[in-house]
Computed example of a mutant assay.
Amino acid sequence: MCLPVLVKNIARLRPSLSDSVAQTLIHAFITSRLDYCNGVLSGVHSKTLARLQYVQNSAVRLLTRTKPWQHITPTLIHLHWLPVKSRIHFKTLLLTYKSLHTIAPQYLTDLLHPYTPSRSLRSSDTGLLSIPRSRLRTVGDRAFSVAAPTLWNALPPEIRNAASLDIFKSALKAHLFTLAFGP
């Protein structure tokens, strides 16, 4: 079943649902599908992202009973939900962290290579990754082997060097939240 149909079905039931039950349904049927394998959507066309963002916005409006003419950004901030593009970056960076710390499957770990400059530089110990060249800008830059190091190298060093997965997740979400909505 497609996402807009799920939103409509939950909307029909919404008057008889409590807020907690509505939130559970939205997380179970909508946000879980938005997040499932969304790392594949890295670098996807903005028109596709806009459609997915529309579904997320509809789910937020349904959950909070926000009117269609009201801005959705304050509601997203209140719920502490990342926009779809930031959720995709979160998933890609999480897989990158897991790959670098041997928590992810070996085939992902094999795609990432540490940056080693040809001569001694200050950047050699900063935990950067080497970004391979891609033949095709549209498709090649979307590959995990290119997108992950690009996003990873853009992170502040204190996030890249997080001591544990939980610390990394919370710091990364806070960073992406700030990038998406401002301080």
Rank of each mutant, 00 (worst) to 15 (best):
I131C: 09
A171W: 06
Y97C: 04
T75R: 05
L79C: 03
M1Y: 11
G43Y: 09
L34M: 14
S123M: 11
V44G: 01
R137N: 08
P132Y: 11
T31V: 05
P114L: 05
L136K: 07
L63D: 02
K91N: 14
L94A: 03
G127A: 09
L41D: 12
P149D: 03
T64N: 00
N57D: 15
I10Q: 03
P132D: 08
L76V: 01
L52H: 13
L112P: 10
S124N: 08
D110V: 02
T92C: 13
N9G: 03
L63I: 01
L129Q: 08
L94M: 14
T102N: 15
S134A: 13
F168A: 02
F177W: 11
A174E: 11
H45D: 15
L17T: 04
L100V: 03
A104N: 05
V146P: 00
R51I: 03
A147L: 02
I88P: 09
S118Y: 04
Q23R: 14
R133T: 15
S18P: 01
A50I: 01
T150R: 14
R65D: 10
K85I: 12
F90N: 12
A163Q: 14
A154T: 13
K169D: 07
C2G: 03
A28G: 14
D19V: 01
T178N: 09
A171K: 12
S32D: 10
S145V: 07
N161S: 15
H175D: 08
T64Y: 00
L100A: 05
Y107T: 02
S124V: 08
G39E: 14
R12D: 04
Q56N: 04
F168M: 05
Y97Q: 07
K85L: 12
V5P: 00
T66P: 03
P4K: 14
K67Y: 06
A59K: 06
Q56C: 04
